[in-house]
């Protein structure tokens, strides 16, 4: 991969990567750090990554960095997160997008990541499997479970409203 191709990858995928990470983490500062870290990894491995595989490489690197960060953070913030989840139903939502966004945040990390890769990036089960390291059938099951949760979460909140 050349420097020119690297810069094209920045132009083409930095925003998508950032969306994927920031929607998962809800932390712009940390998300920015992960994106920089991800592209730094690409820069170091520039000669090993072909231009055709760079998108998958970037998402895989960002996903694993993000998961590491989440696991590390959970050790300290587990209790607060639980309380936040319980209060979700009492919050007011202006539109479906906001409601869905809140619902997604309640998904387990694996399910959240795969459903985002699926909906935001349009990745196939196989590609998501390559990125996350999960098996293809695991990816499929996570997506199905996520859909069920999202549907019933939205339905239950809409009834309350």
């Amino acid at each position: 991969m050349t420097v020119e191709e690297y810069n094209k990858a920045v132009e083409a995928y930095a925003d998508n990567l950032y969306r994927f990470v920031v929607k998962n983490l809800k932390d712009e500062h940390m998300s920015g750090d992960i994106i920089q870290d991800t592209f730094e990894k690409l820069w170091v491995k520039l000669e090993d990554v072909s231009a055709s595989k760079v998108r998958s490489y970037l998402f895989a690197a960002a996903y694993h960095t993000m998961i590491d960060y989440i696991r590390k953070e959970k050790r300290y913030a587990g209790l607060d997160h639980t309380i936040e989840q319980e209060q979700a139903h009492d919050m007011q939502y202006s539109d479906l997008g906001e409601l869905l966004d809140r619902a997604v945040q309640n998904l387990p990390e694996d399910q959240k990541a795969v459903v985002m890769l699926r909906d935001y990036e349009g990745y196939s089960y196989r590609e998501i499997s390559d990125i996350t390291g999960l098996s293809e059938s695991q990816v499929k099951v996570y997506i199905y479970r996520a859909r069920v949760y999202l549907k019933y979460y939205i339905g239950s909140v809409e009834q309350v409203i």
Binding site: D15, Y18, I35, R147, L150
Partner: peptide, 11 residues
Amino acid sequence: NTRLPVGPVLY
């Protein structure tokens, strides 16, 4: 409605 909307997010 469970499909996530693809909105523009700029880095």
